[in-house]
């Protein structure tokens, strides 16, 4: 009698616990599916800090591959378009020491310009452009969509007739940044002369 009773007890305990396990397992599974957070692994965060010029100067075919390489332990100072700012941001994110930039710093924001009279329509630049910013067809003139160009200059080298120039990009007046000295580095007499220069209409 006692034996059957204990069997029953054991079975019911196993049943209840299995039931609980299944119920809560299903519940947790559902919840994790339902309230799944936006995944933002480290590669994404690194990629977000890169300037997305897709210029390949780091030795990788684009910013995303470089972000993956940094995540694997590559150096953080290989991005000339990003410059010091990007290196510091990456150093902050990854807790590494900021290193001086490897290579020449990019000068100003530039844009590719095709001298259309000289273009022979070879499509080499179109194939080189990482962001599809050049339109044209074989034996037809090519041209650059200014708003889409990232100024990576990857199209300059493949051009067989050297008809692509990198021109400084025109900044609209609305994007003017006031030159404003917050650092009180001027001594008072300098300041007075600077002011009178401004004031002379």
């Amino acid at each position: 009698m006692g034996e059957t009773f204990s069997w029953w007890g054991i079975l019911s305990a196993i049943g209840v616990l299995t039931g609980l396990g299944i119920t809560f397992g299903a519940l947790l599974g559902m919840v994790s599916e339902r309230f799944k957070g936006e995944a933002n692994p480290l590669v994404e965060q690194i990629d977000a800090l890169l300037p997305q010029t897709q210029c390949g100067q780091c030795g990788y075919p684009g910013c995303r591959p470089y972000a993956e390489a940094i995540n694997q332990g590559d150096a953080i100072n290989k991005c000339p378009p990003g410059g010091e700012m990007t290196i510091h941001a990456l150093a902050d994110l990854l807790g590494r020491e900021p290193a001086p930039l490897d290579g020449e710093a990019a000068t100003d924001d530039s844009v590719a310009f095709i001298r259309e009279a000289e273009c022979i329509g070879c499509t080499k630049c179109i194939q080189a452009c990482p962001v599809d910013a050049i339109i044209g067809a074989a034996k037809q003139m090519h041209t650059v969509i200014e708003d889409e160009c990232t100024g990576c200059d990857l199209c300059v080298a493949p051009c067989p007739v050297d008809c692509i120039d990198m021109l400084p990009r025109a900044k609209p007046l609305s994007q003017w940044q006031p030159v404003f000295h917050t650092t009180p580095s001027l001594i008072v007499s300098d300041r007075a002369s600077a002011r009178s220069e401004h004031a002379s209409l």
Binding site: Q52, R64, V131, Q177
Partner: peptide, 25 residues
């Protein structure tokens, strides 16, 4: 304010370039 606005324009631009790059890939 202007500095932050310019930064926003810059990051929107790089986001756009990123999407175009991904599309090309």
């Amino acid at each position: 304010k202007q500095r932050i606005r310019l930064k926003r324009i810059e990051s929107a631009k790089s986001e756009h370039a990123k999407h175009r790059f991904e599309f090309r890939q």
